[in-house]
Amino acid sequence: MNQSALETKLDDVAKAVGSVLDDVLGSHQLVAGTPHRLLNAMRHGVLNGGKRLRPFLVVEAAKLFGADARSALQIGAALECIHSYSLIHDDLPAMDDDDLRRGQPTVHKAYDEATAILAGDALLTLGFGMVGAMESLAPQIRVKLVAMLAKRAGAPGMVGGQMLDVATPTHRQSELEITRMQAMKTGALIAFACEAGAVVADAPDEDRKRLRRFGEICGLAFQLADDLLDETGDATSLGKATGKDQARGKQTLSALHGRDWAVQRLDALVGEAEEVLAPYGDKAATLLEAMRFVAWRQR
């Protein structure tokens, strides 16, 4: 599969996820009971484009085991709510203090800080509600997904990683310390996305573990590529500010070891991902192409 074919698939899933989220945020139950300003801020934070990589990974991982595509898409949309909440909060002045996200003003800039905090809170709870309400999945599958998501999005996962990020010590961190922080902050939700596809399909534990490992590798590559883009990219093509890590003294693996090391490490991670998914043969071709896209992307 060439990159243009993959980007077409990514775009198709992104549009489908956007449609699901638009329907949910336009539902009578939500519209009737939600303050107008809060609902608009939620829409601003989650319906603002983006590659929708995490939902794409859920859909493709589920497809690997013949699961219902519609159920996987719904889980992906719920995950995107939680991912978007994390971005809204991450952009706040107390966190990364960003003015631009996906080429648009961040939620606290478009509205205000209090509204941004509450919009993030609302999207977080909405995501869990969407998983719990999915009647197309057996109750035990829904419970399993909710428990997994709580762990990956919470203190042992993404939120814990954010805490390590904002509390970065002034001393030079080791590769292990940086990797742990990034695996929690960025990798946890990507690992969930891949494992969730197997769970939706009620795949055996061995397959779940294999997909989780693939997601962990993909998460490491995503963050390392992101760090490189922060150093070398431009705000117009990325849709967000660049050069932030260096300006704030943040420690990254690319800064620790240099650009050449980072490029070689990305190639090695792609090789690891290929080994993990080798048992699935050609059926895993799209997932592997997504991994290469993550590692070698230019925006």
Rank of each mutant, 00 (worst) to 15 (best):
L189S: 03
A225E: 10
D245E: 11
G160E: 00
R248V: 11
F56K: 02
E60V: 00
G33D: 07
G127T: 03
Y280D: 09
P279W: 12
A273P: 06
A241W: 03
A203P: 13
T232P: 03
A77C: 05
V263W: 12
L137T: 12
M163I: 00
Q29S: 08
A193E: 01
L25R: 01
G258N: 13
T168C: 15
L73A: 07
G103C: 09
T232W: 03
L224V: 09
R54T: 03
S4Y: 13
K240N: 09
R210V: 00
M134S: 10
M181E: 02
C218P: 04
L126F: 06
R259L: 11
D205C: 08
L287C: 07
G239Q: 12
A268R: 13
M291A: 15
E80L: 06
Q29V: 05
D90M: 06
S19E: 14
A262T: 11
A147K: 15
A114Y: 11
G50V: 10
D267E: 15
A41K: 05
V159E: 01
R101N: 08
L228K: 04
E175D: 14
Q298G: 09
F293W: 15
V200G: 05
T236V: 12
F222T: 02
R37D: 14
A273R: 00
K51D: 10
R43S: 12
H28A: 01
Q298M: 10
A41D: 06
A278S: 15
H108L: 06
A147S: 15
A62P: 02
L79T: 02
V199N: 04
L137K: 14
D121H: 11
E195G: 04
V270G: 08
D205Q: 14
D267G: 13
L211D: 00
D245G: 09
Q251D: 04
R212E: 01
L220S: 02
R37W: 10
R101Y: 12
G239F: 11
K250T: 09
G161L: 04
A188T: 01
E275P: 02
Q298R: 15
L73V: 06
L149I: 12
Y111K: 10
A77Y: 02
K240I: 05
K144Y: 11
R210S: 00
R52A: 12
M1Q: 14
Q223L: 01
K9N: 12
A225V: 08
G127C: 06
K9E: 15
A201L: 08
T236D: 14
L53P: 09
F65Y: 15
K250I: 09
M158D: 00
A32N: 09
F293D: 13
F192H: 03
A167C: 08
I217K: 02
H171M: 04
T179F: 07
V276L: 03
Q3R: 15
A119D: 07
H108E: 11
D68Q: 14
Q298Y: 10
S4H: 14
V131W: 06
D22S: 05
R213F: 00
W261K: 11
A119P: 08
G50P: 07
A198T: 11
E195A: 04
E60S: 05
K15Y: 10
G233P: 02
C194F: 00
R37H: 10
L211I: 00
Q182N: 03
R43L: 08
E195S: 05
L238M: 12
G233Y: 02
L238E: 08
L123R: 06
